[in-house]
Design a protein around this nucleic acid. Structure first.
Length: 505
RNA sequence: GCGGGCGUAGCUCAGUGGUAGAGCGUCACGUUGCCAACGUGAAUGUCGUGAGUUCGAAUCUCAUCGCCCGCUCCA
């Protein structure tokens, strides 16, 4: 309990810092906000962009076997019928008005068992996956007297099993848990709907994509025909996706508008297991390499009964957030399910022809699918650190520092004149300009006390601070200060750019 | 969607029917000269929003929006 309170405090402190320093704002805040939508401020957009750029650099630019793609958010609605999203994203649910339990309509069954004279021996309402298990569950729940009746009248029983949504209006189905009254079934439309064109009739209905993956599958042939790639190869995409989450929670973790970074890596069926393991391990390592400590980061292989119908294997990269362990990225072996589905639905050929073996087949696909916003949130949680550092009188003061990995830090280096006179600002501005010209995100600040400026950069997570002082004017050296250790060393002003570049790479 | 808690300055919060507050932060000037310095001054509020009760509402009532926790959900 104590630990939970502490963790809640951490999330509150983090979200307060994110607002105070301009990482994350609530969307439409001046109008009271909107549930499940978030904005990234000046520091947040740099952080998020750095995360996306690092991913793109590592999975596209530095590889010969993966190419990029940027699809439209709105696609022909037939895409979502073929992918199963139109059917599978709409589960009607009922709630119990008494005990507040919620059930999927198609998982609640009413079981009636009668003898040959039509006398009712047992009625029961149970939660089960199908009719068969509903009947078993109902028989199991019967008391001993009823069970004896079962035994005595073995072959003359008539059994009726009805799903909740198959009952007629006047038949009331009570709650399987407490016997309370259930609400009318309610539809949950998890895809955002809109209309393409000005007329809002049913023919114009379109959906905002709930995942970026389908755009890749839909373009499989286009990429194959234009890129001269051979199996195995991948197509990568970063982009927004939209899901009408029933209950957005946990800061930006479960948002209704979010960004995905996905690879669909196509390969031969007999090599799918090998590539699945390759990507699972590579993607796990990527998060470690960018600062997530492995004791908070986990790789969890899904149990067989946990797998989605289209997946042969799946693993989640999970992170221990203050609010619990949650998924950052899923790596799945989706087999040839998606391309097959689109081949059937569109009537277009989705096969690959292997010149060497003279075989024609639909490739398997390994999908590493990560949430950009979730990665950013994990990096924020991991970076947030409070420590004790001495002030100018040697007294220990608490300090908040965002210990970002240098590659994702919004600002790489801050340049200060120790004081705003004696030519120091001019020298500092030159160093600042040199950093910028070298492509470094540099920040110049000459206002207020030097200690305060350092601490401000600590909250922004800037790895290095350069200070121009009186000695700079004499011998052209500056101090450079490390965010985590607070250690300073003196280097030549002309070496600042190369020093910073070496330290952040 | 249900239940509970919360919503007052940029941030953290005090204020239980009678003049809108504190600390921190921000800005300016001076001083200072390497880790949240000091002094002086300044700016910043639809008290989440909308109705109602009342002579009078930040405060009481209702609705609504948002945030947090639990349940639920998580293709």
């Amino acid at each position: 309990m104590a630990a939970e309170n502490k963790d809640n405090t951490l999330m509150e402190k983090l979200s307060a810092l994110c607002k105070r320093r301009g990482f994350i704002f609530q969307s439409s805040e001046i109008y009271g906000g909107i549930n499940g939508f978030w904005d990234y401020g000046p520091l947040g957009v740099e952080l998020k962009r750095n995360v996306k750029n690092a991913w793109w650099e590592d999975v596209v630019r530095r590889r010969d076997d993966i190419v990029g793609l940027d699809c439209s958010i709105i696609m022909n609605p037939k895409v979502w019928e073929a992918s199963g999203h139109v059917g599978g994203f709409n589960d009607p649910m009922v709630d119990c008005k008494e005990c507040k339990a919620r059930f999927r309509v198609d998982k609640v069954f009413t079981v009636v068992i009668r003898d040959k004279n039509d006398g009712i021996i047992l009625t029961a309402v149970v939660e089960a996956d199908d009719e068969q298990s509903a009947l078993q569950e109902a028989r199991r729940s019967a008391n001993s007297k009823t069970r004896r009746k079962f035994a005595n009248t073995k072959d003359d029983l008539s059994e009726t099993v009805l799903r909740t949504d198959e009952l007629s209006k006047d038949e009331v189905c009570p709650c399987p848990k407490c016997g309370g009254e259930l609400t009318e079934p309610r539809q949950f439309n998890l895809m955002f709907k809109s209309h393409a064109g000005a007329s809002e009739d049913s023919a114009s209905v379109v959906y905002l994509r709930p995942e970026t993956a389908q755009g890749i599958f839909a373009n499989f042939k286009n990429v194959l025909d234009t890129s001269r790639l051979k199996l195995p190869f991948g197509i990568a995409q970063i982009g927004k996706a939209f899901r009408n989450e029933i209950n957005p929670r946990n800061y930006t973790f479960r948002s209704r508008e979010f960004e995905q970074m996905e690879i669909e890596f196509f390969c031969r069926a007999d090599e799918a297991d090998k590539w699945y393991e390759y990507w699972r391990d590579a993607r796990f390592q990527w998060y470690i390499d960018h600062g997530l400590k492995s004791e908070k980061l986990r790789l969890r292989n899904h149990e067989t009964d946990e797998l989605a119908h289209y997946a042969r294997a799946c693993a989640d990269v999970e992170y221990e957030f203050p609010f619990g362990v949650s998924e950052l990225e899923g790596i799945a072996n989706r087999t040839d399910y998606d391309l097959k589905a689109h081949q059937e639905a569109s009537g277009r050929d989705m096969t690959y022809f292997d010149d060497e073996t003279r075989e024609r087949f639909i490739p398997y696909v390994i999908e590493p699918s990560g949430g950009v916003d979730r990665a950013v949130l994990a990096f924020l949680c991991e970076a947030y650190t409070e420590d004790e550092q001495p002030d100018d009188k040697g007294k220990m003061q608490s300090r908040v520092v965002m210990k970002f990995h240098p590659r994702i830090a919004p600002i790489k280096v801050a340049v200060f004149p120790l004081v705003k006179k004696e030519g120091m600002p001019e020298v500092a501005r030159k160093i600042h300009a040199a950093c910028r010209d070298a492509g470094l995100a540099s920040f110049y600040d000459e206002k207020g006390a030097i200690g305060r400026r350092y601490r401000r950069q600590d909250e922004a997570g800037t790895p290095l601070c350069v200070t121009v002082d009186g000695q700079t004017i004499e011998d052209d050296t500056v101090t450079i200060r490390d965010r985590d250790s607070l250690l300073q060393q003196r280097i030549a002003a002309g070496d600042v750019v190369s020093f910073v570049q070496e330290r952040i790479s």
